[in-house]
Design a protein around this nucleic acid. Structure first.
Lengths: 143, 143
DNA sequence: CAATTCGTAATCGTCATGGTTGCGGATTGC
DNA sequence: GCAATCCGCAACCATGACGATTACGAATTG
């Protein structure tokens, strides 16, 4: 997959965990979330957009507006977040095909199939954990 | 992992498969390989560099120079190619931490640990196939 | 009505990736 | 020896993804 220069998944997990751990009654503003995640408020909103469409979070404008979880944190697997943000992006990355090369076509097909296998494996791993697991640190520790 | 805008792995698999299927005695030039893969000859050499250092391929300058496999295609797993080219790049991607936020630190740790789990899963899948498998199309077909 | 906060578009800087060129060195064959 | 071929490598450029930033409008609260 190559270096991931994309922080959306990380920001999403962070924000959802933050919301899950928030005890207050009031929603949390993009500004507060952006401070916690160290990114831009606009970026936070852009990341949360798809999650709201999927019904994971709610947002309200206005004076005491902001964001709040719309579901139980234990019901949100990281795989779901991943799919919502990364969609069906390729994991492995392909190169421009050369139609005149038979070997090329075959390799392309194989790599495409392989990408699916690998993407499934990633999703499987991410499905083992939920936002609640992250909040309670029930996630594999580094070596 | 985010969109993979990196074609090195694909190019490497393509080239190695090409070399594995090449019946001639002579090495294959970067130029021929670049035509087959539809990328630049310089890029081909850049991709093959690490593979040569790992002993997977040989290269020779001069009139009938070029590239050839240095090992049996059945001994080269795709996971090995992946590791050589992607190294220890992160799969998931992280965001800039905010040291003053405790939730942030914990999430970072969890994501780092998670990245390792996911990367291992990717490697495991890729280890199931070799260059020879790709050559003989013994790789999962698309739906 | 003023303050707050989201929604969204537009613009910009940065960085990874790969393309392109150029030159030097190694090898082959005449 | 000399020309042709081909790798090695550095330098520079074009493209595109990603976020930061700014700006403005709409919704909500008090």
């Amino acid at each position: 997959m190559a270096r991931s220069t994309n922080t959306r998944f990380a920001v999403a997990v962070h924000v959802l965990t933050y919301l899950a751990g928030d005890t207050g009654d009031r929603p949390v503003s993009s500004d507060e979330l952006s401070t916690s995640t160290n990114v831009n408020p606009v970026h936070v909103r852009r990341v949360l957009g798809p999650l709201r469409e999927a019904g994971l979070v709610r947002s309200r404008p206005g004076v005491h507006g902001g964001w709040e979880l719309a579901v139980d944190a234990a019901d949100v697997t990281l795989a779901r977040i991943w799919r919502l943000l990364q969609g069906d992006d390729q994991v492995l990355g392909l190169h421009g095909p050369n139609p005149t090369c038979e070997v090329g076509r075959d390799v392309q097909e194989s790599l495409t199939a392989l990408d699916r296998v690998v993407a499934d494996a990633v999703a499987t791993e991410l499905a083992r954990f939920t936002v609640h697991d992250v909040l309670t640190r029930a996630v594999p520790k580094p070596l």
